[in-house]
């Protein structure tokens, strides 16, 4: 016997019917903004932080990756041009030829990740992400994301978002943070 209180019966509906669930506009907009800003911040961090630059240098020339939500975005697409510079390649992850596609299985999982209720490592271990492409390159992308999150977020939130919070000198963190925010806002 169920322990729920009895509810009044609603007027009868068609026993067979189609349900078109619709969308979640607030969550979609939030994720769009987060991914857009994250893309610009990674672009900026590749010029500001040595570790991020080294990670990108280790990736092959013309490397491009996307991070987005199944089935229809939002997406963040980034790539290296022939000069080795990291550039945003738009927001249409499905239509481009990419080396690595990191896809979050659904919008709820993306919200858990981008509201920092789950770190990237936890999210991966809970099967919320799928990777299409070389796994070592995807790991490099995740490491870059972690570094950028440490720069962008205050320590109290960043500790939730990354696997292990790094012990950087305060000057490196603060100067790096200002430079990355400045470049990300201006977009260069």
């Amino acid at each position: 016997m169920h322990l729920l209180p009895k509810k009044k019966k609603k007027p009868s509906r068609e026993p067979y019917r189609e349900i078109s669930p619709g969308s979640k506009p607030v969550k979609w907009i939030y994720l769009s903004i987060m991914l857009w800003f994250m893309g610009r911040a990674i672009q900026a961090a590749a010029r500001v932080d040595k570790t991020v630059k080294a990670e990108f240098d280790a990736l092959p020339e013309g490397f491009a990756f996307s991070l987005g939500v199944f089935p229809d975005g939002p997406y963040m697409v980034l790539g290296k041009n022939i000069h080795g510079q990291v550039k945003s390649l738009g927001r249409r992850g499905q239509e481009q030829a990419l080396d690595v596609r990191i896809t979050i299985k659904n919008i709820e999982a993306a919200i858990l990740l981008f509201t920092f209720q789950e770190s990237t490592a936890i999210s991966t271990s809970r099967d919320r992400l799928i990777v299409d492409g070389d796994l070592s390159q995807a790991c490099a992308v995740i490491r870059i994301l972690d570094i950028v999150e440490v720069y962008l977020l205050p320590k109290i939130i960043a500790r939730l978002a990354v696997k292990r919070y790094p012990t950087w000198p305060m000057t490196q963190k603060m100067i790096g943070r200002i430079r990355i925010y400045f470049r990300a806002v201006l977009g260069y």
Binding site: Y16, I19, P21, K24, K27, P71, D72, N106, I107, E108
Partner: peptide, 15 residues
């Protein structure tokens, strides 16, 4: 289920 299918671009049919 209605909530889970949101943003999935997929309808479902209930009986």
């Amino acid at each position: 289920l209605t909530n889970a299918f949101k943003e999935s671009e997929m309808s479902f049919y209930v009986c």
